[in-house]
Write a protein that binds this DNA or RNA. Structure first.
Lengths: 317, 317
DNA sequence: TACATTTACATAACTAGTTATATAATTAAT
DNA sequence: ATTAATTATATAACTAGTTATGTAAATGTA
């Protein structure tokens, strides 16, 4: 299958599906070989039933990793085939009490040999191969239970995309973006306040000329994120990190983190000892980001913003 | 999943199916992550189409290892989704000439990144694991193409069962079996002849007392196969191997081979230099067995049996 | 004790594939 | 130039699973 090599690892699913189909096809021929009238899909259910006498349909489903309706259907097929039967029992009437018929017991005897033969045959394949498929499946089941493929891919996506993000200093051409990106989220969650208009309409006067800084994140040369570092003259803090905004279109590219890191680096270069910020706890991803950047909660400072209900600081080491 | 460990390698199929389901589930979420409206099952078809512009449905099916109807269905779904379209072309009217729409081209651009991210994510899993699932699948595809699982299991079955077969010397209690097993196949394919009745009704007089031997194969202590070594006084051969019969119920346990090997060993012990046999070419499995035992075709000896149309000999080294 | 919740199972409708078979277009053979 | 065989695709019916949902029995709780 040329295809697999061309597509690369992303074809893992397809490759697995084909291998599964090949094995399942042979499985039904193997039952024929042993002269038992048996459908491969019955096997996990039948086997579990033969091993553990008292077991409910739901428990079987859990044990073999199928859904309950699947086991339910198979069970009725097994009954129709005369391999198992329901027995009357006075206890819990929701459960169906199922045991093997003599015919079922006979088949389970044949299976003992059959399973042994398959085991040896597969064991031999494992010996003949450099890469142990059985062990690999076991290992990958574990790896995927630790962290799903989705999560792994998503992390990789973020990593790759953040490489394409460029953090650059504010230039007059980004004035509009600086305002729009901020208005976008502020007016979505709260209401624009007097202090917002001042800073967003005149970043030069209110931020830059007072010794502050503004950074812009570019993606494909488009400004998609902004963040300001504002000088706080009459406070115990040197700077306030504020007006951080990332376009919803560019979310999931780690842009907030990259902007924050760069702002803190700038603060350090400018000799800051402590950086302050204000936010609101309904902005959960933002708060998480601040923690990730190293900010910690502080209490009781005055603020001009109504929307502020949490204040944080970071001490630069 | 306790189940897999209890059942052993025979659960390979089930284990593969679950892994496939887990990967496929995540696959559809991954498409969501990249913001493309795309169903995972479309992928192999769409990808092949994006790579090779001029390709028929049947060729795609072959390339990706699906059935033609499966590709046919997916193709119509892709058309309905506006990702590909049929174009008019004057050549072969059975083929449908399909190309990507602009929307399809856009999605195939997104896929370039997506595939790369998945590749890296899976590559990382491979690095984290001791057993390389991707390499194992590739290797097992090859191993199974060389010899199917069915064939491997069938060989193992034969091997195991032949261990339970006991080859023993003729005793009077096997007289009936000696006759019945032979009558069974002779009358099925040919007609019983005078010479048959003589040997089968009086093995003591016609075989044993003349310096011959009869061996019996027992399975579960039941006689299921017989074979005679008859002294040939007035011939260039020392012995004839004859009256070999195996019960149809006990076929596939290598019994013919075991009987033949043991008969030849006996012949050698008795000082034979050449062993002779007669048969008929319609009995293909038997002829194959004789070749396997080392017999070779010879011509032009006289025979009392009408059914004989092939004569063979083996020179004992 | 009555009512809400949970449990055990069944049923229906869907999914992603399959095989078997039909049909139209093309190619090969007489 | 027919006719037969082959090729390319479509369609129908099936398979082995799934999710969503319904129902009766058992359990928990005010």
């Amino acid at each position: 299958m040329e295809f697999f090599n061309k597509v690369g690892k992303a074809a893992l699913g397809s490759r697995l599906r084909l291998m599964t189909a090949a094995i399942t096809d042979d499985a039904s021929k193997i039952y024929e070989l042993y002269g038992v009238e048996f459908v491969p899909k019955w096997f996990p259910v039948f086997y579990t039933l033969a091993e553990e006498r008292e077991i409910t349909i739901t428990e079987i489903a859990l044990e073999i990793g199928h859904s309950q309706p699947s086991v339910s259907k198979i069970m009725r097929e097994l009954i129709a085939a005369g391999l198992v039967e329901e027995i009357e029992k006075a206890d819990d009437k929701r459960k169906n009490n199922i045991i093997l018929t003599p015919k079922g017991v006979a088949i389970s005897q044949v299976f003992k040999h059959q399973l042994q033969d398959i085991d040896v045959a597969i064991e031999e394949m494992i010996l003949q191969s450099k890469h142990n498929l059985w062990a690999a499946l076991e290992e990958w089941e574990f790896l995927l239970s630790q962290k799903s493929l989705l999560k792994r891919v998503s992390e990789q996506k973020k990593k790759r995309e953040s490489k394409d993000v460029e953090i650059t200093a504010y230039k007059p051409q980004y004035k509009q973006a600086f305002k729009e990106l901020n208005v976008e989220w502020i007016s979505k969650y709260f209401e624009m306040e007097e202090a917002d208009y001042k800073a967003l309409d005149n970043p030069e006067d209110y931020i830059l000329n007072k010794g502050g800084k503004i950074l812009v994140a570019l993606y494909d040369n488009e400004p998609v994120g902004v963040c300001a570092l504002i000088k706080m003259n009459d406070s115990e803090y040197d700077f306030e990190m504020a007006k951080m905004a990332v376009s919803p279109k560019a979310q999931g590219k780690n842009i907030g983190y990259l902007l924050g890191k760069e702002i803190l680096k700038t603060a350090k270069e400018m000799g800051a000892k402590k950086v302050y910020l204000e936010s609101n706890t309904i902005l959960k991803p933002a708060i998480n980001l601040y923690y990730k950047l190293g900010f910690e909660k502080v209490f009781g400072l005055s603020t001009p913003y109504k929307r502020c209900n949490i204040q944080m600081e970071l001490i630069i080491e």
